Simulated scan of single mutants.
Amino acid sequence: MCQHKPKCPSADSADREAAHPVAHHPEQGWSLLCNGVLLFEDTGELLPDGSVIAPHRPLGTESVITAA
């Protein structure tokens, strides 16, 4: 599917999110990459074969406020 030079990573490679977006819909929270991966705003992914990759946001980025 990818026509870029050099070719984008395939949907089954570890760096699949580096592929170029061919459709971007931030108002709906998703992008379609040229390797067929649907990338969601929450970092979840739907691969072309129907496999689901759960969201993988970095942990520990939220502030915790405690009452004194």
Rank of each mutant, 00 (worst) to 15 (best):
P21T: 06
T43R: 01
S13H: 13
L33K: 02
C8W: 07
A19T: 03
P58W: 00
R57H: 09
K7R: 15
H25F: 08
H25I: 13
H24G: 10
A19H: 04
K5M: 15
D42A: 10
S51P: 11
L39K: 07
P26G: 04
S51E: 14
L39A: 10
A18T: 13
H24L: 08
K7I: 10
S31F: 05
L39G: 02
L32D: 14
R16P: 11
A14F: 08
L32Y: 02
N35Y: 03
E41G: 12
D42E: 03
T43C: 00
C2H: 03
A54I: 00
L46S: 01
T43D: 00
V22T: 15
L39Q: 11
T43G: 00
G44Q: 07
L33N: 00
E41W: 12
C8F: 05
A54M: 01
A54Y: 00
D15G: 08
T43F: 00
N35F: 11
L32M: 09
H24W: 12
R57Q: 07
D42I: 01
P58Q: 04
L47I: 08
P21Q: 02
S51H: 06
I53H: 06
A19Y: 08
R57S: 11
G60L: 05
G50T: 11
A18Q: 06
L38M: 08
A23P: 13
Q3N: 12
R57D: 03
L46Q: 03
V52E: 04
E17C: 10
R57A: 03
F40N: 03
E17K: 12
D15R: 10
F40V: 04
E41N: 14
T43H: 01
A54E: 00
H56W: 01
R16Q: 14
L38T: 13
D42F: 01
L32Q: 09
L32E: 13
L47Y: 14
L59A: 14
G60P: 09
Q3T: 15
P55M: 00
P26T: 05
E45N: 03
E41Y: 13
E17A: 05
V52R: 14
D49C: 05
P26A: 05
P55S: 02
L59K: 11
E17R: 14
D12K: 13
E17Y: 10
E41P: 02
D12M: 14
P9I: 11
L47M: 07
A23I: 08
P9L: 15
G50A: 02
E17L: 15
F40A: 06
F40E: 03
L59D: 06
V37K: 04
